[in-house]
Nucleic acid binder design. Sequence first.
DNA 1: GGCGTAAGACTTTTT
DNA 2: GTCTTACGCC
Length: 742
Amino acid sequence: MIQFKNRFSILDKMVLNSVQRDAVLYTGGPELVFAGAGTGKTRVLTAKIAYLIDSGIAPGHIFAATFTNKAAREMRSRVESLIGIPVNGLWIGTFHSLCARILRMEGRAISYDSAFTIYDSDDQLSLIKKVLKSLDIDDRSITARQAAGLISRYKNRCMTVEEVEKMAKGFYEQEISRIYKQYQKLLREQQAMDFDDLLSNTVFLFRHNSELLQRYQRLFKYVLVDEYQDTNTAQFLIIKELCALHGNIFAVGDDDQSIYGWRGAQIDNILYFENVFPNTRVFKLEQNYRSCRTILNFANAVIADNEKRTQKQLWTERNEGEAVQVCRYRDDRQEALAIAEKITNSVKGKIRGGDVAVLFRTNAQSRVFEEAFRRSRIPYILVGGISFYERAEIKDCLAYLRLLVNPRDDLSFDRIYNVPARGLGEKAREQLADYAKKSSLSMLQGLLNVDVAALGSRYQKGFSELKSIFELLIDLCNNGTPVEKILNEMLQLTGYLDILNKEKTEESLGRLENVNELLNAIAIWSRDNPDKKLSDFLEEVSLVSDIDSWEKKENAVNLMTLHCAKGLEFKHVYLVGLEDGIIPSKQNFDDESKIEEERRLLYVGITRAMEKLECSHVDQRWRFGVLLPGVPSRFLQSLPKSYFDYKDESISFGQINPSVEKKAAMRSKVSQQVQSPSEMPGYEDFSQETVEFRMGQYVRHKSYGRGRILSISGFGDDMKLTVLFNDGVRRKLMAKFANFEN
DNA sequence: GGCGTAAGACTTTTT
DNA sequence: GTCTTACGCC
């Protein structure tokens, strides 16, 4: 029995309302906290952990699952500042990272050793493509993507290969089950797990090793779960097993913010929580501290249209606030330009760029905004898109490092055996693969074992080069050489750096910079984590999300998807592209439960706003290079007009919204400080380059001479220019390295 | 076996 | 409009 004393010492440090306080203090078994948007969910969760530790439960006995690493990091540091001591042993992190930790220690029970590799979705897709080829399945009948989706669904429900095999009906399902079987076999052989495996393998591990399960049941005296509405079946099973003995589960969530159904999340987990955990005590946090009344009413009205939800109504003591605006624009370009202008006017007042967010349904929508912001010289941060660790050159580097930790990772071997090119192609690979298969070795193990001459004289040079590189790197690794030194050595030995250096195209310079950035990141990481190993670094890298590295910058406007925005708040929010087919997404038209999820997504977006909310839709939108017509989202159309002010801005040509302009002009006159963009504070935050290029512009390059810009593509750091030089050669340059002379 | 060009697909959201 | 893949030439 746990003794709870010092009841109030910790609580006194936190300002909690009475429901929050009751939720924190309750320790009588299963507990479910419905925490509406902005009702202080994180505060309660943090207080709960601090309270448990203060009551005598060692941090190492607490298991707390959050939705992002960022949330985990923040929560850990808040708990530490509350109780005043470090909580090193605390198990806090995403489900994926917590499971990875368990699997690294216990994987032997399911034939995985502690050095297994984590495959991201790209790797997963590559491996499935390989499987399709080996099973001779035409990728026009089943695409790798489809197979990946279905396999992921099986795994999310913790269905084993055998179970799927048994229930597969019809040709299609049987084919998928064949793919699943072969895919799992390859993963096992290569000692690799995909994201779903981290969860499902943990379930399988517990399922087949009751002693081990009991050990963890005793270890974790308290289980806390954030964002419970977004848990999938595998996560649910893990939780259920872990608290089967004591029932000490504390789940926090909001069914109205369940937006990951497409990833296997079961909203039923939260809705039927009380059926699964008997004698559950339910708390409902309904007082919202974030948004003003107009916004909250708007949000309540939108979500009220959903059938499948628990009854609740957010309320606030905050002021009425400005009316919610719904704007109609002519097309997405006008939408972006108009919003850029509105933001420009806002930042002339007391609003900073960092207080503002533009939220959209799909990543593709960010482009027009980037363009408009560049034009208006508004600093911005784009969250998501192609992440650093997905870039080809970074994945090459990581593949080398992965192989040093796990030599059985054939997928990584495939990636790099001829990178940089050393004359080894498909034929060469087959030679080595034959040998490896005969000797039951992985590709790299085979290479290290084989007499290279036996693989054919044509490939001897390439293979012996690769072999000696790895022999050297493995030596360094065994000597405990710092990771950045190993990577640096790899870059030198393989000639990767030389090739990039020689190439001198502006694109290669970009790649070079990325590689250097990786070296720096590793060096910093090693310094901060002196007792961690290369394998730890690789794991952290595999499990980072886009939002994990996001930091609010004072002056930079935030651009992100609605999914990314969950859990965040901004003074001003622009919800853009509210058209039927975008939100709700066309692909979810068929199913009412999916429509409800889309409505929740909109609800999540709305409830991010504190003071000002503008929703917008356009008549026409550029997609795939053509203009497509659009109608306002059904979610807007079903709303009584009393909840918002409607503005048709599609009719205004040229200068947009003169009334806003006039007001802003008046305000700046009063305050006597008109800021030109270049004097904007924190302008150095503006990573997006200050130089602007136009099509047709004449430029002079230090080595290529004079030329004319033919086309511009991409934005920010990725902006590329196609320039026709006077020597008649067309060259593609990275704008940020172009360094033109005047 | 490497490199360039052309056709095709593609956009939901992400640990 | 952009990215990936396939194919043909060197």
